[in-house]
Computed example of a mutant assay.
Amino acid sequence: MATPQHFVWAAGHLVLLAASLRYLLASLTFKTASSLWYKASYAGAIVSYAIVCHKSVGYPQPNIAWARRALLDENIQYLMLALFWFTSKPITLTLLPFMIFSLFHALTFLRTTVMTRYMPGPPATAGGPPQPHPLAKRLQAWVKANYDSAMRVVAYTELVIFLRVLLGAVAFQNSLLAPIAFAHFVRQRYFQSAFTREAIAGATRRAEALVHREGTPPVVVQVFEKGQLLVQRWAGVALVPNPPAAAAAGGARR
């Protein structure tokens, strides 16, 4: 049975979806988009992620063990990111990953809570489990079929966001802190998400092919290779639960 906290969690995701769609549509049609919709989007995200974080790590505690557990929690990472974007100058693209997550959460809530209560399925067969409504089955099938593709879109979008805030910092369109903070976020996602690793590997291959094509000045190649080396050294140590060898020995875990 859904608790009031569960309904508040779902309401946060619905607010995020509705407000971000309103803000995104205004931006796409070149209309003036009120920053209130942007703030409302991230307010919804903060509410939903705060509830999940409370369930996963509890209240903050003044010790290293709790801090380490919190820093390793993916929901904490997205909560901190939502807080950062909420207090920063609006960047429309940053809403897209949160919108995708909220869409899947909202559909799952609709299927498992709302439809179960208000759209019961056909009568169960003798001795069999209750049957979901046919629409609930279709929703479940759609979510299952599209989840991986959606997570790849999120991973690639986060790389584009990093490029956007990096160029924005150079052009003084956003704060210098934005690319630094988001780089640390992407770095941690690399060690925790197979989708992020796949996106970075794909982007790296495309960049290498572009830089090493015939006619590229040698100085560009040298700068690119030195930049790669610096990034690899910076990202080489991460806050992860177990070393790669131990994780491999213990089996895959997401």
Rank of each mutant, 00 (worst) to 15 (best):
85 W>T: 05
91 I>A: 10
11 A>K: 06
35 S>I: 03
133 H>P: 01
126 A>V: 11
116 T>M: 08
124 A>K: 09
100 I>Y: 12
34 S>H: 09
122 P>D: 06
42 Y>R: 04
116 T>K: 15
29 T>M: 07
9 W>C: 05
132 P>H: 06
110 L>H: 00
69 R>I: 00
104 F>M: 12
77 Q>S: 08
92 T>H: 04
51 I>C: 05
55 K>W: 05
80 M>V: 09
96 L>K: 02
79 L>I: 07
63 N>F: 04
135 L>H: 01
102 S>Y: 04
113 T>F: 06
101 F>V: 11
79 L>K: 08
130 P>Y: 05
39 K>V: 03
64 I>M: 04
61 Q>E: 11
134 P>M: 02
96 L>Y: 14
53 C>E: 15
13 H>V: 08
26 A>G: 03
34 S>D: 15
108 T>C: 05
130 P>A: 07
46 I>T: 02
129 P>H: 10
13 H>E: 07
63 N>G: 00
5 Q>N: 14
126 A>K: 09
67 A>P: 00
116 T>S: 06
97 P>C: 06
49 Y>L: 15
76 I>K: 02
54 H>I: 00
115 M>K: 01
13 H>T: 10
10 A>W: 08
33 A>D: 10
99 M>C: 12
89 K>T: 13
82 A>G: 04
130 P>S: 03
19 A>Y: 06
99 M>P: 03
84 F>V: 01
19 A>T: 14
56 S>A: 08
89 K>Q: 13
50 A>T: 14
97 P>H: 03
98 F>V: 02
24 L>D: 09
69 R>M: 03
94 T>W: 11
123 P>D: 14
18 A>Q: 11
113 T>D: 13
125 T>L: 14
80 M>Q: 13
91 I>V: 13
108 T>M: 04
39 K>W: 11
93 L>H: 04
31 K>H: 12
81 L>S: 11
54 H>V: 02
49 Y>H: 04
60 P>K: 04
47 V>R: 00
34 S>Y: 05
4 P>R: 12
92 T>V: 14
35 S>L: 01
76 I>S: 03
123 P>N: 06
78 Y>R: 03
84 F>E: 07
129 P>I: 01
91 I>G: 09
44 G>R: 08
71 L>I: 01
54 H>W: 14
89 K>N: 08
90 P>V: 03
86 F>I: 01
114 V>E: 02
13 H>Y: 13
35 S>N: 13
40 A>S: 15
44 G>C: 05
95 L>W: 09
69 R>G: 12
52 V>K: 12
82 A>P: 01
5 Q>S: 15
80 M>C: 13
69 R>W: 02
130 P>T: 03
103 L>C: 08
